[in-house]
Amino acid sequence: MTRFDDLYTEADTFLHRLDPRVKIFSVLLLSLLAFVLSHLLSLILLLSFIFLLLLLARARYSKTLFALKFVLRFMALIAVLWPIFDPSGTPVLARLGPVTITEPAIWRGITSAVRVGCLATVWYILMFTTSQRDLVRALVKLGLRFDFGLTLAIALRFFPAFGSVMESIIDAQRARGMEFEKGGVLTRSRRYVAVLGPAIVTALRTADTLSLALESRAYGARKDRTYLRDLRMSGGDYVALSIAIALLVVPAVARFAFEVPI
C-alpha cells in the first residue's frame, strides 16, 4: 500500500535535525512572506528557494510529484480562470462577448498561481522532514492539550490502516457487482453506504478496543505527561529561526515602511 506512505522520509539532513517547533514557525513565516511579496519575479525567487530547501532535505522525487499533482491542477485553474473574471487594465487583448481579456489580468493570474505554489510547497519542507510523532509532540509543547495531541496521534496512526480498509471494502463491493458510476443520486447514496457503513463499523470496533488499551495503560494518570526524549532548542535552531524571521521582516519592512515595490 505505497499510496498511504507517510510524506515523511527518513534522512539525516539539517532540516531533519531542526526542532519541529522551529520548522512549524518557519513554514508559517514563509507562508506570510508569500503574501508580502506581490511581484511575480520575487515570488518565483521564493519558490526557487523553497525547492532548494526541498532538494537539501533530499525530498524523494516520487513523493514530491504525488503531492504536487493536486497543487499544479489548482494553479492551472487559477491562471486560466483569472483573466476571464478580471476585465481591469490595459492593453485589452481580446473581447469575446461579455468577457474581456487584458494583459495585466493574465499576469495577475500567473502571480496568484505562483503564490499558491509557494504556499503549497513550503508545507512539504515540514511534512517531508518531520515524523508524525515529532509533529504531534511539537504541537503539545506549543500548548496543545495532551489529550487532544493523543487524539491526533491516534488519528495519524490509524489513517493508513483505514485507507487500506477502504480500498478493500470498495474492492469487495465491486466484486459483488456494484458500480459507482451508475444510477441517480438515491441509488448512488445507497452505494456510498455500502462502502462507508462497513468502514464505520470497523472503525467503531477499533475505538472500543483502543479505549480499553488506553485505560489499561493508565492514560490520564498524570496531567503533566513526561516524555523520554524532551524537545530542546539548540544553537542551530535559534539561528534557523532568526533567519526565517529575517526573511519575513526585511521584505515586509521594505514594502510597507519604505514602499519598495517587491
Binding site: 495519524l156 496512526r157 464505520i200 467503531l204 475505538a207 472500543d208 479505549s211
Partner: peptide, 11 residues
C-alpha cells in the same frame, strides 16, 4: 472519547 474521536478523525 479520545479513542472515538481519534478513530473517526482517521476515518
Amino acid at each position: 472519547t479520545v479513542a472515538l474521536y481519534g478513530v473517526l478523525t482517521a476515518l
